[in-house]
Simulated scan of single mutants.
Amino acid sequence: MKLIAESGSTRTEWVLVEDNNLIQRAFTEGLNPFFQTRREISRSVRLGLPELFFKKKLEQVYFYGAGCSSHEKKNILGASLVAQFKTPIQVESDLLAAARGLFKCEAGIACILGTGSNSCFYDGKIIAKNVKAGGYILGDEGSGAVMGKHFLSDVLKGLAPKDITNDFYDKFRINANEVMESVYNRPFPNRFLATVSYFLADYLNEDYVYNLITSNLRSFFTRNVCQYDYQNYPVRFVGSLAHYYAELLRETAKEFGIDLKTIEETSINGLIEYHAMNREEV
């Protein structure tokens, strides 16, 4: 039996798999070694997962996560999981999860739009090229966090429409000072910012909101996708925001001559298929 996990900054999806069959699925909070210590990760896993996940005899745990791009961060995550499951652990990035989940063993351009954003050219085995994501301060174009950041900046500066601003303050039960507190002094500001981005979906008929979202998506294509050979390889997307704004994402892709056929909410089903093929090389 295998345990496969895919984690963004907001949520982690865990699946127990035996002979390509899904046995049980569970969700916990997002795990990210950039924002959490080894002890905090261990505690989150132990308290968040059902006891069944610790009682099953596992041959391997495959964990794919945001923030797991360097050996140092992989080791933090791996040590936390070994302590909980007492079994071999393979920790890889959420970007490799996207590539394997979207393309299995085929070549293509894999893109993530969720709380954060990322992209790569995957040659069917490895990530052959990656335009660095930059995080929600220096990059993450098109992500929920960056959309939320741009909207809140407009709200604080009085540039967002007043009715949308008032609705935001009312629905979130928050004021300008608390916005600043949530972004600068509370844990996981990227999660807060991403939550704000989904609020905008109720106002897509407003030119301000439509333009804010599409300009962010356009920025993702311009600054990321266009740096790959996107005219000769398929482009596919995964992530909560990509799924949520799929129609606008497809419209924006067409501006770049891209026929976007595949948009998945998560990579987990593709990862189950990938690991059933016994292709475990990195």
Rank of each mutant, 00 (worst) to 15 (best):
Y198S: 04
N216W: 03
V45H: 11
S119H: 08
T252E: 15
I174E: 03
K56V: 08
G135C: 02
D163Q: 15
N232M: 08
F221C: 01
G116E: 06
V15N: 13
Y64Q: 07
L16E: 09
F172R: 11
Y208K: 05
N177Y: 09
Y208P: 05
Y233D: 07
E59T: 10
L249P: 07
G116R: 06
G30V: 06
A201S: 14
P161A: 14
V179L: 15
Y228A: 00
S70F: 13
E92V: 00
S70W: 09
R43W: 03
D19W: 02
L31K: 10
F220P: 09
K129D: 10
E59D: 13
S117N: 05
R100Y: 05
E255D: 15
F27E: 06
E247P: 01
S267W: 07
I112Y: 01
C120V: 07
L81D: 03
N118K: 04
G30P: 05
F34I: 07
N21Y: 14
I126T: 11
S219C: 08
G67W: 05
E206R: 15
Q24I: 08
P88V: 01
N278Q: 12
E13V: 12
I112F: 04
G257R: 02
A99E: 01
D207M: 08
E178N: 12
P187C: 11
W14G: 14
Y184C: 04
A128G: 00
V225K: 00
S197I: 07
R11K: 15
E206Q: 15
S44H: 05
S119M: 04
G101F: 06
G116K: 06
K132T: 11
S117C: 04
G142F: 00
H243G: 05
N130H: 15
S117G: 09
F121C: 04
E264H: 15
L156S: 10
V91A: 00
A66Q: 06
N278D: 13
S70L: 13
E92T: 01
T266R: 11
E13F: 01
I272C: 07
A26C: 11
L200V: 09
N185A: 09
T28A: 09
L260S: 11
I109T: 06
F220R: 04
N278V: 02
A79K: 10
E251W: 04
C111G: 09
R38Y: 00
E265C: 12
F54C: 06
I174H: 08
R223E: 08
L249K: 05
L204R: 05
A160F: 09
K254W: 10
D167K: 14
E251Y: 06
G139H: 07
G270S: 12
G48M: 11
L138M: 08
K57S: 13
F221M: 00
A66M: 02
Y62M: 10
A66N: 01
V235K: 02
M147N: 11
T37M: 02
A97P: 06
L49A: 14
E178T: 09
A201Q: 08
T214I: 10
D229R: 04
Q231Y: 01
S240Y: 02
S7G: 06
A201F: 11
Y122N: 07
T222M: 12
D123W: 02
F27P: 00
E247F: 08
A107G: 03
E141S: 04
